[in-house]
Design a protein around this nucleic acid. Structure first.
Lengths: 139, 139
DNA sequence: TGAGTATCTGACCAAGTGCTCATATGTTCA
DNA sequence: TGAACATATGAGCACTTGGTCAGATACTCA
């Protein structure tokens, strides 16, 4: 019933179960608009929880919940400074993943039939490497 | 109440709403083990729906549902050959995204405290560029 | 120490997701 | 044309997810 000769070979080459899970979990964490926004802002500046909430217009509890997921995924790291905890991207992969996904979205748009109602104009600076953490005036 | 000076500037630099949505949607599609497995197998060989289901041990309906999401996200493309429809990766970004995420997972493991019960051994060939669609013996 | 501030956590709930089953659509070939 | 096959689609349901609210924890400073 099969159209190819080496079903066993093909199946044996695939990602093993754990790797599949870890890849999916990583992308799952990235697959939420709120977390994308948090990572985006953190890619530009190290910020404490309250400020992330303020800049993005979110509740502090919601931000904290999301930061926990980002922490577990090792996408952000934290640094305590007094009562505040500053968050920053934990490694360069986030930025590169964003850049790749951004390219995909761009090409996707090119191939997609332009929707009559589409906005057309859009900020689309390609994501770049994160800037070093700015000097904070910790209070 | 803010710890930084240019909250307006920072907020105005961020990804706009549409880009955030599109990035999150792209990652969301990648954030499921079944779809990761489908993309993984398609990165190695162009396959029809039934064969994907067979190789991965999934129901054909489930595969079809997932392929629709992958199609909508422009991650796979389809080619009809008789009654069968062959699927393949639509662009190179998937592979690169997998490679980046794979690197992240690897580094993440290095930094993570090794769990006593962890397996330790694992297939972890880094994802490579997809091979050209193999010649199928279409029936 | 205790008030004040910043962050985290758990319970809860509305919305979203992924699977299965049944059925529809589309293609081939006798 | 109609049977057989391959794939797609819709409804239904168990499970997950992301937010809010209330309360806990952690740190600072008078």
């Amino acid at each position: 019933m099969s159209t190819w000769s080496d079903t066993q070979d093909l199946a044996s080459e695939l990602f093993d179960r754990d790797l599949v899970t870890e890849l999916a979990d990583t992308f799952k964490v990235l697959g939420d608009p709120t977390r994308v926004r948090i990572l985006d802002v953190l890619s530009r500046q190290e910020l404490c929880v309250g400020d992330i909430a303020t800049v993005l217009g979110l509740g502090e509890s919601a931000v904290s919940h999301q930061l926990r997921l980002l922490r577990n995924a090792r996408l952000v790291r934290q640094r305590r400074a007094g009562q505040q905890i500053f968050y920053a991207l934990d490694d360069h992969h986030v930025t590169r993943l964003f850049a790749q996904a951004h390219e995909h979205v761009q090409e996707r748009r090119g191939r997609t039939v332009p929707q009559p109602g589409a906005t057309g104009a859009e900020k689309s600076d390609p994501p770049r490497e994160p800037a070093p953490a700015a000097a904070e005036q910790e209070r």
